[in-house]
Design a protein around this nucleic acid. Structure first.
Lengths: 195, 195
DNA sequence: CCCGATATGGACCGATTGGTCCATATCGGA
DNA sequence: TCCGATATGGACCAATCGGTCCATATCGGG
């Protein structure tokens, strides 16, 4: 399978760097030069291994969605209480302690905001990613209901979408310059929906 | 004051067109060509009357914020009940009946998402606009409390920010392809915070 | 009727954009 | 050791980017 000259870079690492660049700057504001510098490879290698800018971006979107989903799932499974997981996730977002990446918002939502419905491939990647997040939160809500921390008569799917909506709005407002105290107060109200 | 050759275009109309272009496409994705075509004027006139692209964008942001604020205020004052105003506003957003512009999201939040905190002028314009919106919703909450439709012990400022957050998230999710029914369900949960 | 002042159209600019192409390097297998 | 196959670096490209400049058009006031 590996005939010919071997790659001089780690494709996963390079993809991660590309993802970070798109994430922090957006699609249009990211030039090929930016990508090449961040990924530390030549233009030829980029096109050889990842195709053109749209294809690379698409791979970054899907990589992001999967990565975040598994991180959330891991955190959920490691939590003693599903409700605690939800509260911790939101509070961490409000604190912005969540690495410097918290200042970047959510790549999927940034992309939804930037592209809207203009590009079919992008829209589909975004929709799929949102579905992943929603699924995780639905699972969390359902488990919380089983654990008696959320009333059983609530619609887990609707509640999950509500949580995703609030997380999205919160991250956007943080990018808009809202302060920590204000974010905390918003989160407090948001989480009341679980009572 | 009006010495020299008169303008052959309506500056307000031109600014409106520029705003719509930035609103629907974002800043980076909007070229000067796009602006000139939408505004129906020559490059010279653009630079003469509005300055360069960043300056024009800044004016669009402030124009948008003021326009939306006054529209919301008007709607609030025309409502018999402040709570009805809030509910109507959110339901309209969920329906997407809200002209084609609903597919564009909110210019201020799109901008926050696209720029983050990179540009001081832009950040300030966004923050000021968000403050306008928050003020309107706070006024609405306070009036609703006076009218007995929202418990008096709630913090109007925090509730207003919560509403802005939810509106932001909702508009973003609509851009991400969420359906009407799902949006309605989210809004229903959002509005429970007023009970 | 001319003059100062503003508006307008279009030529022009260097820089950058995303993308292609080819010569060269470096591998595994025969 | 040579060959097929892949990787890499860099030259090169047309198109477009935002922006400047100047000649011309069109006004009001003297």
């Amino acid at each position: 399978m590996s005939i010919g000259r071997p790659r001089q870079f780690d494709p996963d690492r390079a993809l991660e760097r590309a993802m970070e660049t798109f994430w922090s700057q957006g699609y249009e504001a990211t030039s090929l030069q930016d990508l090449l510098a961040a990924m530390s490879l030549s233009k030829s290698s980029l096109y050889q291994s990842f195709g053109d800018k749209p294809r690379l971006f698409d791979r970054c979107l899907r990589h992001y969605a999967r990565e975040r989903e598994s991180a959330l799932l891991e955190s959920l499974e490691a939590s003693d209480s599903a409700r605690a997981f939800i509260e911790t996730t939101f509070n961490a977002a409000a604190e912005g302690t969540d690495t410097e990446r918290s200042r970047w918002g959510c790549l999927l939502m940034n992309t939804a905001s930037e592209f809207g419905m203009r590009d079919t491939r992008v829209s589909q990647a975004v929709a799929e990613g949102v579905a992943r997040f929603t699924r995780v939160f639905r699972a969390a809500v359902e488990r919380a209901q089983r654990e008696g921390d959320v009333p059983a008569d609530r619609d887990p799917q609707a509640l999950a979408r509500y949580l995703v909506t609030n997380m999205t709005g919160l991250r956007t407002l943080l990018k808009a310059g809202i302060g920590r105290d204000e974010a905390r107060a918003v989160v407090a109200i948001t989480l009341r929906a679980l009572d």
